[in-house]
Write a protein that binds this DNA or RNA. Sequence first.
DNA 1: TTGTATGCGTTATCAG
DNA 2: CTGATAACGCATACAA
Lengths: 337, 337
Amino acid sequence: MNKRSSVTIKDIAQQLKLSPSTVSRALRGSGDINAETRELVRQVAEELQYSPNPIALSLKEKRSKIIGVIVPEIANTFCSATIAGIEDIAYQRGYHVMIFQSHETYEREVASVRLLASRRIEGLIISMSAQTRQYDHLLEMNAPLVMFDRVNEAIPSHKVVVNDRAGAFRGVEHLLGQGFRRIAFVSMAPWLSVTQNRLKGYEDALHKHGMQLQEKWIVQTEDMETAIRGLFSGPDQPDAVFFAVERAALCCQKVLKEQGLRIPEDVALAGFSDNPLNPYLAPALTSIRQPTFEIGQKAAELLIEQIENPGDEMQFKTLTLETEMEICASSLRREFA
Amino acid sequence: MNKRSSVTIKDIAQQLKLSPSTVSRALRGSGDINAETRELVRQVAEELQYSPNPIALSLKEKRSKIIGVIVPEIANTFCSATIAGIEDIAYQRGYHVMIFQSHETYEREVASVRLLASRRIEGLIISMSAQTRQYDHLLEMNAPLVMFDRVNEAIPSHKVVVNDRAGAFRGVEHLLGQGFRRIAFVSMAPWLSVTQNRLKGYEDALHKHGMQLQEKWIVQTEDMETAIRGLFSGPDQPDAVFFAVERAALCCQKVLKEQGLRIPEDVALAGFSDNPLNPYLAPALTSIRQPTFEIGQKAAELLIEQIENPGDEMQFKTLTLETEMEICASSLRREFA
DNA sequence: TTGTATGCGTTATCAG
DNA sequence: CTGATAACGCATACAA
């Protein structure tokens, strides 16, 4: 929209008394063209600060060089870090990234998908909203699609996930190793694969150590704050909480603080979270860390590969990256802490 | 790019044996048209899941209904929250938001501005990178521009800022009120207006309480970690730090921890930060809070107003919002903590 | 080597 | 009331 933007190929053509097509060829180097003419055109283009109109290009080539990204919330550390990874690759390969948030609602997600589709984006990278339980909007897309984090097996696409089961297993086993025996599990949407896998890891760990699963200590709801309050109000309270989503960490902190319960003296805490401040919390929060930047990179690579090789009837891959555990005071027995 | 996207006005016309122009009119309701025809067209459009091609529309109308946003880092809490506010208004008014990160580098910022300009975005909302000390890329834009947070008076545009001077004043006065007398100031780019204003607030507070400014306690550098380490290595160390940027908070935590200095027993801490975890840190971090969501909303409103009334030779406004102070343990004298 | 004509999807204008 | 045509900016098949 700056001055440069209104200069078209025609202006250059006019000034040089050439036809627009010649100018076009000179600029893009296709076809045979007189070296002098080319140079001349280039010079004038430079002078006039010509830059091609990408909208016209998109219309013509049916390509926009834009990839869409839909995440639940960019305020979520995991999401913003992943986006950084996506951008990294996208810009390297000459693509631009259009970011949308679903704010964890199905409606916003569907609206965003439709919008992006109508905008002729060339591909979509998505982590679904927690509310999404129906996938028509994604199945209808026939642009390349890559899912990450919140994926669904029923949807044919590349997927990038972490080994949630192993990550949760490791975290819970760590809690068990510290002597905690009454470990609650807090999560949100039970229909999401991440939730299910993390729950499996939790079960694996309990099982391996010969412990009984206590249904009442498994919380899976949107309204985590209330649920956690429930965990710590009746008799038979947990002595540790393993949270499967970042937001739950904050909820736990809040409720425990409000109930006057100390971490880890009264209740230990560990779980999935990618917030960089975790080691500085009171007390420092033991976290299962995901390779966020890399997840974004891989997703973008898979997407662009797909965009640029449309013929290939490819096998859809599921890339599984490993998590790391950052052990901090929140999950250590007092005597060690 | 889903199936719907390939249905054009022509397809509808063909199916109904009408001309494209008739279909266009029927769909957009302009001009006179037979009520039956209109209904028929609408039905077929519905059946075929027609949706207009926005790229063609953009080309024709020279409008893209896209506004660009450039921020230093979306991982920064302040930025992501602001973007949420921008999105809120934009979507209400039918605009889409294209987000770019400068990663605090001048080059990325210039590249993003140029890209957005060439993409025919209708307006730009920007918080400049810390490196940016030259503004040609912004001055050249003749699309509507709104700056927030990192603004520059030399650039003719609407601006949305917070009362940085008052915020810093309040924070530092609070530290003084708690009995701290050796207060350092940590920030990054001294040429930014935010930095300058926050520094002024710091000076105001010291001055009001009859204190001398100590140059050696004023740190303004990219490499904050080293600088802070410097503050706490020699003799004559501060007993409190007021930080003017969110990132500095983390740096302080890190260095103080590594030097075995306790907060607030040895060194008190307060400053600008919008991280929601601050109250849960060890100890809880006293924070000057900005109305992030509202900043984004206001910026978007100003931009869209400008986009939609291009004729108006408007006065450029600078909107100044107030900060709030959230007092926590990190800035309280031990006896009160 | 260069110019002309055409089309991408849409709408405004003018003719019917 | 409806249809034909041109135009937005660009690239390309084809003609010269």
